[in-house]
Amino acid sequence: MSTRGPWTDIRLRAAWAEQDWAAILREYRRAAGISQRDLEGLIGVAQPNIAAIEKGRRKITSAEVIARITEGLQVPTELTGMPATSDPDQWAPPLELRERIAHGHATGRTDLRTADWIGQVLAQHRRAEDEVGGMQLWRVVRSQLDAVTRLIPATSGPVADRLMLLAAEHAHWLSWVAHTHGATGPALAWLDLAHGWAVDGGHADMASWVHRVRSYYSLGHGDPQRALRTAEAGRAGRLSPAAGSVAAHQEAMAAARLGERDRARRLSDVALRLAEQVPEEEERPGWLYWLDPTRARLQAADAALACRDWATAAAGFREALPALAGYPRDRAHYQSRLEDAERHLSR
């Protein structure tokens, strides 16, 4: 039985971040599809004791037992070095991350298996955030970013560039979670890191995406002029169709907020055409996994709503919403947008 696979599971990693031993054992067994008796052979704890731990009747305090569990379950290295505190004051990026990246092009070699693993897990985090919530995964992703940046000083050339992209993806995710929890300053600081790492690594799509996110923040804070300037910067350079699509959509939303509706409609059409060029997930950058044809149509409806084209917006939302059944938070968001359009139509 492979023990590596279960650690892609989001709930298991979140349980480890909380050091909730009952949850760790339960979630590990669920992810691995094994019984308490099977687990006994892995960690050297008798099955009746495992049952008592999982039910909360027995606590784990022994360092020796913790070590056996850590070794027996083959906890990934990026989790074993996780800081003990979960203090939310640690929103801001630490200085040592910048120091590691600054030495990213030293001559050297590194084993990329860890980076590939962490990239796979981050992709799982993106998909699970709607269900689990970003705060539960914050310490996990921070620890993963530490693991990635520790690899960078021993790399050079394309390998270093690849790791910088992975670091930028983590920093962007951390920015988003900080933003959703009202930590605006740290959210922008994480974006600064993500953008710098994307540029240093030569990743135009990620650099554009960071501009798009910053523009979104500005629009949400009531500064459409700044949002428009930032969105325009995000469309500069040679971008993939998917990256170009989200950049054009964001510029459309900012232009609509400033009353430039013709420009917004043109940009929305551009965004939809570009998204339609890459309907399959493997054709898009990893962080744009969600930009399928359904999401592209929803974004077009959102732009129509911003342009006060109520009928077009309502029709677009009605057509696309049924396909969001598996995404409760997004479905609720777009359902509210549909209701907004319908209220205006009924006046």
Score class of each variant (00 low, 15 high):
residue 310 W to S: 13
residue 200 D to L: 13
residue 272 L to W: 08
residue 342 E to G: 14
residue 189 A to H: 02
residue 328 P to D: 02
residue 24 I to L: 12
residue 8 T to I: 06
residue 168 A to L: 09
residue 115 A to D: 00
residue 259 G to S: 08
residue 64 E to N: 13
residue 145 L to W: 03
residue 109 R to A: 13
residue 309 D to I: 12
residue 247 A to R: 02
residue 236 A to R: 14
residue 269 D to N: 15
residue 103 H to V: 13
residue 221 H to N: 07
residue 164 M to A: 05
residue 162 R to S: 09
residue 236 A to Q: 15
residue 239 L to F: 12
residue 296 A to Q: 06
residue 184 T to P: 05
residue 193 L to D: 09
residue 239 L to S: 12
residue 300 A to D: 05
residue 99 E to D: 14
residue 336 S to P: 05
residue 155 T to Q: 10
residue 167 A to T: 07
residue 235 R to K: 08
residue 48 P to L: 07
residue 240 S to V: 09
residue 141 V to T: 13
residue 253 M to K: 10
residue 229 R to C: 03
residue 28 Y to I: 00
residue 202 G to Y: 13
residue 148 V to F: 10
residue 92 A to V: 04
residue 125 H to V: 00
residue 168 A to S: 15
residue 167 A to R: 01
residue 144 Q to G: 13
residue 281 E to D: 14
residue 8 T to E: 05
residue 316 G to V: 07
residue 76 P to Q: 11
residue 137 L to I: 04
residue 268 S to G: 15
residue 213 V to I: 11
residue 302 D to R: 03
residue 237 G to W: 10
residue 308 R to P: 02
residue 328 P to Q: 11
residue 98 R to P: 02
residue 211 H to M: 09
residue 90 Q to E: 11
residue 238 R to Y: 01
residue 115 A to K: 00
residue 234 G to E: 00
residue 16 W to K: 04
residue 12 L to D: 05
residue 121 V to R: 00
residue 58 R to M: 08
residue 151 L to I: 02
residue 214 R to M: 09
residue 34 I to H: 13
residue 315 A to C: 10
residue 131 E to F: 03
residue 310 W to T: 04
residue 192 D to G: 15
residue 96 E to L: 07
residue 310 W to M: 06
residue 338 L to N: 00
residue 139 R to H: 03
residue 306 A to P: 04
residue 185 G to C: 03
residue 52 A to G: 04
residue 52 A to F: 06
residue 269 D to A: 15
residue 268 S to P: 08
residue 122 L to P: 01
residue 297 R to G: 14
residue 149 T to D: 01
residue 224 P to M: 06
residue 256 A to C: 00
residue 158 P to N: 06
residue 259 G to F: 08
residue 44 G to E: 13
residue 165 L to R: 06
residue 47 Q to R: 14
residue 138 W to P: 01
residue 220 G to F: 06
residue 66 I to K: 15
residue 160 A to I: 00
residue 227 A to P: 01
residue 345 L to K: 05
residue 299 Q to T: 13
residue 86 S to E: 11
residue 132 V to P: 14
residue 278 V to G: 03
residue 269 D to S: 15
residue 33 G to R: 10
residue 180 T to M: 04
residue 125 H to F: 00
residue 15 A to N: 13
residue 254 A to Q: 07
residue 108 G to F: 12
residue 100 R to P: 05
residue 4 R to H: 03
residue 145 L to K: 07
residue 287 W to K: 12
residue 273 R to G: 02
residue 260 E to R: 15
residue 87 D to K: 04
residue 262 D to R: 09
residue 118 I to M: 08
residue 239 L to N: 04
residue 234 G to D: 00
residue 1 M to T: 09
residue 245 S to R: 12
residue 217 Y to H: 08
residue 183 A to N: 06
residue 201 G to Q: 02
residue 321 L to G: 09
residue 302 D to G: 03
residue 328 P to C: 06
residue 185 G to P: 11
residue 301 A to T: 06
residue 93 P to Y: 04
residue 335 Q to P: 01
residue 51 A to C: 04
residue 197 W to L: 07
residue 173 W to P: 03
residue 223 D to I: 07
residue 139 R to G: 01
residue 101 I to Q: 05
residue 147 A to T: 07
residue 193 L to S: 12
residue 90 Q to N: 14
residue 241 P to C: 02
residue 310 W to A: 04
residue 44 G to I: 09
residue 129 E to F: 02
residue 82 M to Y: 10
residue 288 L to F: 11
residue 149 T to F: 01
residue 183 A to H: 15
residue 101 I to H: 10
residue 101 I to R: 08
residue 60 I to D: 03
residue 160 A to D: 02
